[in-house]
Design a protein around this nucleic acid. Sequence first.
DNA 1: GCACTTTGCTAACTAGAGCAAGCATAATGG
DNA 2: CCATTATGCTTGCTCTAGTTAGCAAAGTGC
Lengths: 122, 122
Amino acid sequence: MSRNPLNDLAGLGDYLREQRQSHSLSLRQLSELVGISNPYLSQLERGLKRPSAEILQQLAKGLEVSAETLYVKAGILDEHPVRHDETPTVRDAIAADPDLTDRQKATLMDVYESFVRPDAPP
Amino acid sequence: MSRNPLNDLAGLGDYLREQRQSHSLSLRQLSELVGISNPYLSQLERGLKRPSAEILQQLAKGLEVSAETLYVKAGILDEHPVRHDETPTVRDAIAADPDLTDRQKATLMDVYESFVRPDAPP
DNA sequence: GCACTTTGCTAACTAGAGCAAGCATAATGG
DNA sequence: CCATTATGCTTGCTCTAGTTAGCAAAGTGC
C-alpha cells in the first residue's frame, strides 16, 4: 500500500539511530523511555519494521523532535510543513462545531453541497 | 496513552461515517477512493479496527479533512494546542469560501444562525 | 585468568490490521 | 412477478507489527 516502503523505512531508521546516538542513549534506554521493546527499536533503526502512528508519537516525545518530522521521515506525511492552504473548509467547520446537532450538521452540509455542486440531485 | 482504545475508536468511527455520508459517498466509493477494502472501512466506522498511520493519511485525503484531525479523533495525537492557531468557525469558513456567491453565503449564514440561536426572531 | 554488565542483534511467537469472497436486505426496472 | 444492482455487513484468511527469551561480542573490575 505504501509507495516505497524500503526507502522510507531506511530513511526513518537512519534518522532514528542518529537522533538516539546524539542523545547518548542506548537501545534499551530509549526503548524503555519510549515504552517499546529494545529488539523492536533495533529493527526500526535498521528499517526492518514499519512503526505505527502511536509508536512514532512516542518516539518523537522520547527524542524531543516534532511528530511531524518523524511522519515525514517515515513517508507518511508529505513534505508540506504547514498545510492549511488546503482550504479551511466549510465542511470541516460545520463538522467541528459543538453547537450543532448531527442532524443540523447534515442539513447544513446538504445546503452547502447544493451550492458548491449545482449539478447534484436536489 | 491508548488506555481506552474503544472510546477512541468509536469516536473516530463515528466521525468517519459522518464525514463519508456528508460527502454522499457509499462505503465502496470511499474505500476505492482511499485505496482500502470496503469491509475494512465498514469495520473502521464501527470502531472494530484501529487504522494505521498510512490508512489515516489516505482517509484524510479522501475526505478532504486534515490528517491531524483524524489523528486526534483516533486518540493518537493530543489536542495539539501548539499550532492550534485558530478554531475554524463556521462563520469564518463560509465567509472565506471562494466557491460561494455572496447571496449563497448570506443564505447559509442565516441557516446556521437559526440553528445556533433558535430563540432568534424568524 | 574469570564473573558481571552492557551493547546490539536473532529467533520464535502472538495479536490484530487489512484483505477477498460472499451474504442479506432494499431499491430499481423489465 | 423476477433479475439486477447498490447498500452495509460477516466470515475466514494472510501477513506483519510488536513481543519475550536468549545470544555473541565488547567492555569493566577482581
